[in-house]
Every structure is written in structure tokens, then in C-alpha cells.
Amino acid sequence: MEITTDVLVIGAGPSGSIAARTIAEENINVLLIDKKSEIGTPKRCAEGILTSTLDELNIKPDKRWITKEVTGIEITAPNNKTITFDDKTVKLPDTGYILERKVFDKHLVMDAIRKGTKVMIKTRANTVKRTPTGFTVNATRLGQEITIHTKIIIAADGPESRIGKMAGLKSRTDLKNMASCIQYEMANVKLEGNNVKIHIGTVCPGGYIWVFPKGEDIANIGLGILKSHTDKTAKYFLDKFVQNNPILSEAQIVEINVGGDPLGGLVEERYADNIMLVGDAAGFVDPLTGDGIKTAMLSGKYAGIVASKAIKQEDCSKKVLKEYYDLTKEHVGNDFNKYNKVKEFLLTLDDNSLNKIVEEISKSDMSEVTVTKLLKIIIKASPKSILKLGKLL
């Protein structure tokens, strides 16, 4: 079977779905394919999202995929001192939700379908070959070989992206910047309140542990580590945390998720003639927090906008698609460069230094939380940081 489309989006995660929806809204033929038999599985996400992200992407909150409304965040230092930022203590820049990604991702795909996107699941792209007008993709759908002809490919196939490599892009994240992540969804957790909980220090070398509440007694508990900081596995540290944390003493695992998280910042070669990379495939993951859902969807939006223009202009060259690079650099990349510098500095700190920073934050006026204020506090607690962070103020 042969199929012809203007744009082929490979990968039906949030970035791919938003790209497809954006293109379909311009009445352009777009096909979205995904190798999985069920959209949204397996999840590789702590499932948190800011309300402003939904507003920015014109996604109406739906109780079917919201499991919890988050009221704040608690950060616990190595010495177990905890600082809390919530609507009772500070003026938060935003609030958020904990999602059920299996439902949320399907919602995004269904929305793209309603706008005119054609969708094929259980469809794996096997080879990508350039043609004078774009690409020919050989794929397998439910055991049947199909050929897809397209003018533009938007690759949204995750951190192990094969599509960019097959198209000739140097799009792989360096292994030193690939965090090893594991998460347990657990029931019978002794939760209090609706805050996200973060634990820092040697409890999780080169990363942090998160506890995201999903219900009265349900939570995602996970972590990501950089292998350059330990010779032990991510599972070792998560199991140790679960065994030693009182709120998890009677909890049991109902789901396990594992995977890599690219923390090196945006991939430089994220576009070429007739192709753009979005989401994890192009490194759209905050290097400091590991959060990727917001920036993934933004990358999909920008790729969709640029692809639509290119199709209408009948010019899908690298010169035209460079607008995607420029948009993502301006709205995402510049911030990522700053966060990368903060991350690199924080990775040099021992538990004692982290304790001092948390202590300094607890003594400071945090009636309004800003990045600049936090940077000043870090520098005050650790004067040597001014050499690396001073230019960011």
C-alpha cells in the first residue's frame, strides 16, 4: 500500500500530536503514525504540568486526565530540612496538575484527529530515504508493508530517535548527558496535602528524587541519575529511598517505568531539508529539572507552524525550515543554556553545600519566587558559585 501526504509526523507523544494538530488546523494533509498499539504507553514522565502550559497551547483542562491539582512544592535537603513553596507561604508564578498521561496523550491525538489529522497506530517506520520532493518512508503496519511519500517529516520518536539519524542528522544526545530514570507508581502511600516533594543530595547522585501525588494514596515516586556520578543503578537508589521513607512503608508498586532523559540541552542539528526534530528527539528537556512535556509541546507547535508555511510556499528547504530553529532557540534554547550552567554548578556540590543553600533559602524573603532571587541566594550560600553563575544575573 502506498500513501502520499504533505507532512508525516512520526511519534504520537505530546510533541507529535501538537505538531499534527497545528498543521491540520491549516487544512494541510498530515499523517501521524506511532509504533505502539496504545497511545500514551509506556509513560516516561512524572506527569506534572503547569496550568500556563495548557493555556499557551490552547488545551482545555479535563477532569478525565487530571488526577490531582498541585498546590506547591517541598524541597528536602540531605539533612532532612524541608522548605515549602505553596499558596500559603509565597506568591507562586504558576500552579499545576498531575496528569494521567495514558489519557492525556490520547486526548491530544483525538484533538488532532478532530482537526483533520490522519492517524495510524501500530505503524513502525523502518527506513527513511530522501527523494527530490521530500522523503519516502517504508513502514510496517499491523504486519503489512506500506510506503509513505511525504514532503516533510516531523520526527517525534523520543530520546532514542532513529529517524533523525536515518535522515543524516547528528541528533543523538551524548551519553554523559543522558540521565537514567526509573519511576514507581505506588498505592497506599501516606500522603499529606497536594504538594510535589523533591529530595536532593547523595540520596540521588547527579539528580533528585520526586514524589508526585496522583490521588488520596497514589503517587509517582521516581528519580533520574547521571552515570558520571555513581556506579550504582537508578533502581538501587529508588529502592533504598522507598525502603527508608516512612510515607512508603506500606505502599506497593502498581507500575514501573524506566528510560533515558536527555539533559544536554537542545540538539543543534534539529532540522534540515524537509525534516524537523521535536520533543525528546531534539533534546527539548529542561537540563535543570528534567521536565520535558511543556517544551516538547512547544517544539511541536513551532514545527507545525513552520511546516504549514513551508507547504503553502511549496518550499521545504532547510532555508525555510530554519525559522523552526530560530523560534525554538529564542523561546526555549536561550533559557536552556542558562539552566545548563546552573545544573553544572549544582552537580559539583556536596551534601553540606546543599544544606547551606536550603538553609539560606529558608531564612530569605521568598514571598515571590523568581530565578534571579534563587540565583542570588545560591551565590550567597556558596560564594564560589559567582564565578559560574554571576553572569546569569
Rank of each mutant, 00 (worst) to 15 (best):
M1T: 12
M1Q: 11
T4W: 09
T5P: 05
I10N: 00
G13V: 03
G13R: 02
G13M: 04
P14W: 06
G16C: 05
S17A: 15
A20P: 05
I33Y: 00
G40M: 05
P42R: 08
L54W: 07
D55L: 14
W65F: 12
T67L: 13
V70Q: 06
G72Y: 07
N80V: 11
D87H: 12
K88S: 15
K88G: 10
T89G: 07
E100P: 03
L108M: 08
L108A: 02
M110F: 12
D111S: 15
M120I: 12
I121A: 06
K122P: 07
K122V: 10
K122F: 10
A125R: 06
T131K: 06
L142W: 11
T147A: 11
T147F: 09
H149V: 09
I154D: 02
I154G: 05
R162T: 14
L169Q: 01
S171V: 04
M178K: 09
A179Q: 04
S180H: 11
Y184D: 02
K190E: 15
E192T: 15
I198L: 14
G207M: 04
Y208K: 04
I218C: 07
H229E: 14
K232T: 05
T233R: 05
Y236E: 09
F237Q: 03
D239V: 06
N245C: 11
I247S: 13
I253H: 06
V254C: 09
P262R: 02
V267W: 08
E268P: 01
E269V: 01
N274P: 05
D286Q: 08
D291I: 10
T295A: 08
V306F: 04
A310Y: 01
V320G: 03
H331L: 06
N337A: 15
K341H: 08
L354V: 09
K356R: 14
M366F: 04
V371Q: 10
K373R: 13
L374P: 06
K380M: 09
K391W: 09
